[in-house]
Amino acid sequence: MANSKDEKAEGAPISSLIDVVFLLIMFFVATAQMDQEGFDQNVQLAIAYDMEKIKNRANGQFPISVLKEGRVSTGPGSTGDIAGLKRELMQHVANYGDEVTVIIRPDKEVELSVIEEVMSAVGECGVAKINISAKLEE
């Protein structure tokens, strides 16, 4: 009988282990990039040191990632071409009106002629607020 009690006392401290694991899970859930939709992580942004940091992502923001091969991405399900981009942006403008701000996220190796195409498409959709984005190094 006494032997059984001793075994129980010497068991691994499961409850504290679970506490730690749950804390870790909460950390990863909190830091998971749920708001990264449209911010394609395959883009190698050029590095900037003094440009203004993007602090919060407002509803009206419309990120357009321009990948190295010239494809444009606005998030999962994006068609990758300018016609698809225009359709999606028109929809966004219909939802948010004047609040829409386009953030162009170009790969550093993309030629500016591609950016010209994207900017023309954005202009045709009636959006005047255009930002060019870069990776911030502090």
Binding site: I25, Q33, N131, I132
Partner: peptide, 28 residues
């Protein structure tokens, strides 16, 4: 505990570096 460890493994595997972005506004 099994489920919890699976969750933990999933979040560790899918964790990506947070890229700080900056921008500059321009007019066409």
């Amino acid at each position: 505990i099994d489920v919890t460890f699976l969750l933990l493994t999933y979040f560790i595997m899918t964790q990506t570096e947070v890229i700080e972005e900056a921008y500059i506004a321009m007019n066409m």
